[in-house]
């Protein structure tokens, strides 16, 4: 990754950069369109609610178009493996209504470490329990964050 915060990686798939730029152009045009027709650019002697969306949307779309025309499609290497944490975390978040926040997150750590990282079950359970306990004590008890309890945990609370 080559943003300000990531080390440069190898050059990767060239389709990603134009695809992201195209997404930005579409977003910019949508913002400009909504701003122009729905919110109004200039009203009551001043900028209307659509002023910034139109200016910034057009700016992003025009610069994005220029970027596409320059055809300098630098992209860092990405693989499907990069997205595994997002998919697994998506499943864990979806299970929160059933297990509750603390248990779902604990299970995520245990299962991730044991199944994806191939660590021993003992180590996975120990780290999952420590992290889950820390979250419960810090956020649940001290900061009194009202975590979702989950249908399975409801009879015990």
């Amino acid at each position: 990754m080559s943003s300000v915060n990531q080390e440069p990686a190898h050059e990767g798939r060239s389709w990603l950069s134009p695809l992201v730029t195209l997404g930005i152009i579409v977003m910019g045009l949508a913002w400009a369109g909504f701003g122009w027709w729905k919110y109004g650019v200039w009203m009551h002697n001043g900028p209307g609610a659509g002023f910034f969306p139109v200016v910034m949307g057009l700016g992003a779309a025009l610069l994005g178009g220029y970027e596409l025309l320059r055809r300098r499609f630098e992209t860092d290497r990405v693989s499907w493996r990069n997205l595994w944490p997002a998919v697994a975390m998506g499943l864990a978040i979806a299970s929160i209504p059933l297990f509750g926040m603390v248990l779902a997150m604990t299970l995520f750590i245990v299962l991730w470490m044991a199944l994806i990282e191939r660590q021993s079950w003992l180590k996975s359970v120990a780290i999952g329990a420590c992290a889950g306990g820390a979250i419960y004590l810090l956020f649940g008890m001290w900061l009194m964050v009202a975590f979702p309890e989950g249908a399975l945990m409801a009879p015990f609370t």
Binding site: M1, S3, G12, L19, D76, A86
Partner: peptide, 22 residues
């Protein structure tokens, strides 16, 4: 929470396409 997850994936692709996030 869902928004954070989506923002993370979008930012990942943006950074890979060399758009800075800061």
């Amino acid at each position: 929470v869902w928004f954070m997850l989506g923002a993370g994936v979008v930012a990942f692709f943006m950074t890979a396409a060399r758009y800075p996030i800061a």
